[in-house]
Structures are given as C-alpha cells and as structure tokens.
Amino acid sequence: MDALDARLLDAHARDDRAGLVTLYAEAADASPDIDAACFYLTHAYIYALEMNHHAVTALHARLKQHGRV
C-alpha cells in the first residue's frame, strides 16, 4: 500500500478532493480488515459530501452495510 499512500499524500498536497474520494475508496478496498476499510471509507465519504461527489450514495451505503452510519 506504499504506492497508494504516496498517491494519497500527493492528492492532499494538491488539495485534489475528487482524487481523495477515489483514493480513499481504493484504500478501503485494499484494507485487510473491516475497521481499516471503514476508516478509509469515512474519509472518502466526508470528502465526497464536501463536494457533492457522485459517489456519496454508494459510500454511504457501504458504511451503512457495516453499521458505521
């Protein structure tokens, strides 16, 4: 996940919020356990909400599926 971490840091440095939504969702998919995945999904969801990103509904559903919303 080192390459993904580097891409996340780069997106933060550039304030690329749409990229952060995508990258945090990708990090969730790559996470070894549900707690880590939901940590990343929460970040993706927050950035998505801030910009009314098209992934808001899907991210919310994923978090809800795991009892996190």
Results as ranks from 00 to 15, higher is better:
Met1Cys: 07
Met1Tyr: 03
Asp2Lys: 11
Ala3Arg: 12
Ala3Asn: 13
Leu4Gln: 11
Ala6Gln: 15
Ala6Met: 14
Ala6Glu: 15
Leu8Phe: 01
Leu9Ser: 14
Asp10Thr: 13
Asp10Leu: 15
Ala11Gln: 05
Ala11Cys: 09
Ala11Phe: 08
His12Ser: 10
Ala13Phe: 09
Ala13Gln: 05
Arg14Thr: 09
Arg14Gly: 06
Asp15Tyr: 07
Asp16Tyr: 06
Arg17Pro: 04
Arg17Trp: 01
Arg17Cys: 02
Ala18Glu: 10
Gly19Gln: 02
Gly19Met: 01
Leu20Arg: 02
Leu20Glu: 03
Leu20Asp: 01
Leu20Val: 02
Val21His: 02
Val21Tyr: 02
Thr22Ser: 11
Thr22Lys: 09
Thr22Met: 08
Leu23Phe: 08
Leu23Gln: 08
Leu23Asp: 07
Leu23Ala: 08
Tyr24Ile: 09
Tyr24Gly: 03
Ala25Pro: 05
Ala25Ile: 03
Ala25Tyr: 05
Glu26Arg: 14
Ala27Lys: 12
Ala27Ser: 13
Ala28Pro: 07
Ala28Ile: 09
Ala28Val: 12
Ala28Leu: 10
Ala30Phe: 01
Ala30Asp: 14
Ala30Glu: 14
Ala30Gly: 14
Ser31Cys: 09
Pro32Val: 05
Pro32Phe: 02
Asp33Trp: 03
Asp33Pro: 02
Ile34Val: 15
Ala36Tyr: 04
Ala37Gln: 08
Ala37Tyr: 07
Cys38His: 08
Cys38Gln: 04
Cys38Leu: 06
Cys38Ile: 06
Phe39Gln: 12
Phe39His: 14
Tyr40Gly: 10
Tyr40Ser: 14
Tyr40Ile: 03
Thr42Met: 13
Thr42Trp: 05
Thr42Ile: 09
His43Asp: 00
His43Phe: 00
Ala44Ser: 07
Ala44Asp: 04
Ile46Val: 12
Ile46Trp: 00
Ile46Gly: 00
Ile46Leu: 06
Ile46Asn: 00
Tyr47Gln: 05
Ala48Ser: 04
Leu49Asp: 07
Leu49Trp: 00
Met51Thr: 06
Asn52Leu: 15
Asn52Tyr: 15
Asn52Val: 15
His53Val: 02
His53Asp: 05
His54Glu: 13
His54Trp: 03
His54Arg: 10
Ala55Glu: 10
Thr57Ala: 13
Thr57Trp: 01
Thr57Met: 05
Ala58Glu: 03
Ala58Met: 08
His60Ala: 09
His60Arg: 08
His60Gln: 08
His60Cys: 06
Ala61His: 02
Arg62Ala: 09
Arg62Asp: 02
Leu63Glu: 02
Leu63Tyr: 04
Lys64Tyr: 07
Lys64Leu: 04
Gln65His: 06
Gln65Gly: 00
Gln65Val: 00
Gln65Thr: 09
Gln65Arg: 10
His66Ile: 01
